[in-house]
Design a binder for these strands. Structure first.
Length: 598
RNA sequence: GCUCCCUUAGCUCAGUGGAUUAGAGCGUCUGUCUUCGGAACAGAAGGUCGUAGGUUCGAGUCCUGCAGGGAGUACCA
């Protein structure tokens, strides 16, 4: 409807003034009309006429259009358009609204990759993983809603220093006990146990880094082949190399000679590989628990770093020869400074790929396998400048995929008062703890909310914030059942469905609307525009804002207008039906259930 | 130091270059309820939109400086 009216105004402008104008209709305050445009103000300069004069000329012409009920000139030269209710009623159904949406028509043939979530095996899933997974899920839903073929990619670091840190601690804990000892850890304790291993390995590595050479012996407590040499750090670096060998499936690697760990702690190459693959699988199982609980759309494909590492390394080495990358201090770097960015290491002086080289491999894998129209990567904003460097380097030898790649970043999850979570302070909240805390808080309200409602509360609490800024996680507010919350929307939906279920007669036509009815209808017809905007900007929070306004509108309507038993029952049932469908559709885009009853 | 981001009510956040009055939620205070579901509705109080300039007919919104906060800044991800 909006597009239709914009075309109308543009045509009138053309007819009267012989000029093309980019007419943009906005939604003004309801008291002013259904749409407004400032086109007269824009034209006045160009035409050298008084803006009100221009507006008046446009008004006269527009007033004759059969779709418009009233056209007014206001303020310095705004045009306020009031649309006939029956015209609004023609395009009120969700199907019609979505069908007439610009994006749906434009993007039908597109193939879009969306990468998000990206948890690393061996590391705990913290609140940030929950958030980034939900953000990615709702954005992928928006894209899928356009009709584009949507490929959800999940990428995880199954190789690299963080894994080596964990493996170091795992071997230390096993203390030669091998797979048998590993099997003694009960399934439910595995995630926590893995989390502790990472923390221990990371601390040992950092301690070794921070200490001077004299005190290195105090670090770690492996039995050493070479007493006094080191140490956790060297062990971890050696394990790191080993992991690259076994991650790809080599189960009989040669143990590196530099490996310093004592014989007792060090398993055979074969056993090392088995321990690695076993514990990695524990992480994958744990990821699935979270995704299942969140009820996000399953990923199309999980890509472990180990899968794309060879291609990344090969490419970086090839492009090193061609001068895209340079050698520096024994490492292979990309000189980002010439482009006003940072210089970053792609292959370190140990000859091992860093995250950068792996990301090169990932980007090329995506391109080779999918030939996407657009590739969206969603991460926290701490990776923003990093990603610019990686993409800029890829652009030098593969411009097409680089240009089609968009990096979307979001903020970090913080605690009340803007306190950042830190493992050192012990105030880290894991992803599953957030859900558990929400369930507890839900019970405490005495209303015994369902799992659907708990999820709605958590998802909405995160989704309503504009993507980009940090999100304050307040356990109390995030499970709020009232106000601007997921449960409020679910309730506003269930309430409407309840009316529809109770009605014995069918719904009728939307004619001769009262002010309240028209007001609700007007709000419903905004839906397509909101989805349009949210999709264009990749900002699902616009949908939250709208749905809340919509539900408020309905609750206001409900307060003053009886449906069943009223003279207007037929028309009102129709209106309620459209309202409930719209709300349900919007909630679906957010990944939130719209139950019929609560 | 350099690069990038942020700053709107006590708290958490929306806000499309526009229209006497910058909007929500929570919290505080006051009401509504023989009613299709009260997880509701109505109202009050609470703001020099960090600050100083600039552009514009018009700036919370665009530009510049400053202050405060955050992220990044080569072998982590």
């Amino acid at each position: 409807m909006k597009q239709e009216l914009e075309q109308l105004v543009a045509a009138v402008v053309k007819e009267l003034f012989g000029t093309d104008a980019a007419v943009e209709l906005t939604r003004p305050d309801e008291q002013f009309g259904d749409y407004a445009t400032n086109v007269a103000l824009q034209l006045s300069k160009q035409l050298g006429k008084n803006p009100r004069e221009v507006a008046e000329a446009l008004r006269e012409k527009l007033a004759g259009d059969s779709r418009l009920q009233a056209v007014e000139v206001a303020g310095p030269g705004f045009l306020n358009l009031k649309v006939k209710a029956e015209v609004m009623a023609r395009q009120v159904s969700v199907q019609d609204q979505v069908h007439t949406s610009e994006h749906v028509q434009v993007e039908v043939a597109r193939k879009v990759l969306v990468e998000y979530s990206d948890p690393n095996p061996f590391k705990p899933l913290h609140a940030g993983h929950l958030y980034t997974t939900l953000v990615g899920d709702s954005i992928a839903r928006l894209i899928e809603n356009t009709g584009a073929e949507t490929i959800r990619i999940n990428y995880g670091g199954d190789v690299g220093l963080h894994v080596a840190k964990s493996m170091w601690s795992i071997l230390k804990w096993l203390d030669g006990g091998g797979l048998a000892k590993l099997a003694s850890i009960p399934e439910e304790e595995r995630p926590k146990w893995l989390g502790e291993r990472y923390v221990e390995g990371n601390n040992a590595y950092e301690d070794a880094n921070n200490l001077g050479a004299d005190s290195l012996e105090q670090v770690g407590d492996f039995t050493r082949l070479k007493p006094g040499v080191l140490d956790a750090k060297l062990d971890i670096l050696a394990i790191n190399k080993l992991i690259y060998e076994v991650a790809g499936g080599n189960n009989n690697p040669e143990l590196g000679v530099e490996y310093n760990t004592g014989e007792k702690a060090m398993p055979s190459g074969e056993e090392f590989a088995q321990i690695y693959h076993t514990t990695r699988q524990w992480s994958y199982d744990y990821f699935k628990v979270l995704y299942d609980q969140l009820e996000v759309v399953p990923f199309t494909r999980y890509i472990p770093e180990s899968e794309v590492t060879p291609l990344g390394v090969k490419t970086v080495k090839e492009q090193l020869e061609k001068g895209v990358y340079q050698e520096s201090d024994g490492a292979v770097v990309f000189d980002g400074e010439k482009l006003g960015m940072h210089t970053r290491v792609f292959i370190n002086s140990e000859g091992l790929p860093t995250y950068e080289a792996k990301d090169v491999g990932l980007s090329l894998t995506k391109w080779n396998d999918y030939h996407f129209d657009e590739s969206i990567i969603i991460t926290a904003n701490e990776q923003e400048q990093y990603m610019r460097v990686v993409v800029a380097s890829i652009h030098e030898f593969a411009p097409e995929p680089a240009e089609r790649t968009k990096h979307l970043t979001h903020g970090v999850v913080k605690l009340q008062g803007g306190v950042k979570m830190s493992s050192r302070k012990g105030n880290v909240v894991t992803a599953l703890e957030i859900l558990e805390a929400a369930r507890e808080a839900g019970k405490a309200t005495g209303t015994n909310p369902s799992e659907e409602t708990i999820l709605a509360a958590v998802k909405y609490a995160f989704a309503k914030n504009r993507i980009g800024g940090d999100v304050i996680y307040d356990p109390k507010e995030s499970i709020a059942l009232e106000g601007n919350s997921g449960p409020y929307l679910q309730y506003a939906h269930a309430r409407a469905r309840s009316i529809l279920a109770k009605a014995e007669q069918g719904s009728g036509e939307l004619t001769d609307l009262s002010d309240d009815e028209r007001s609700l209808l007007r709000k419903i017809t905004e839906y397509a525009e909101v989805v349009e905007k949210a999709t264009a900007e990749l900002m699902p929070h616009h949908i939250c804002t709208y749905l809340y306004e919509l539900a408020q509108k309905f609750n206001q309507f409900y307060e003053h207008n009886r449906v069943i038993g009223d003279d207007r029952q037929a028309a009102r049932l129709k209106l309620v039906e459209h309202y409930a469908d719209t709300l349900k559709n919007g909630l679906e885009l957010l990944g939130i259930a719209a139950p019929e009853r609560m």
